[in-house]
Amino acid sequence: MSAAVEVTSSTRPRVSPRFRLQWEEAQQSWVLLYPEGMVKLNGSAGEILKRCDGRRSVAELVAELEAAFSTQGLEDDVIGFLDVALHQHWIEV
């Protein structure tokens, strides 16, 4: 994975096999687990990552989120987060 790869609306991201995405009831949040470590995700990061299954495109993912939360114009924020996630190796494209 290199920094040159970019996330676009047609990208189909999936959570990297290096990480395990899991809902933690005790923390009331989604977390990413990896060897001896954990990333606690905020609400929107969790909602985005749980939809990163390698099948949905970013455009589909954004449409789903906009429907689920009755809002519009999320694409820039979602792509911005996924760029960070890609840089952190949380996702693969």
């Binding site: 899991q22 933690e24 009831e25 005790a26 923390q27 977390v31 687990l33 001896e36 470590g37 954990m38």
Partner: peptide, 8 residues
Amino acid sequence: AAGSVQCG
């Protein structure tokens, strides 16, 4: 049950 998630 108490919320532990990493186990060594």
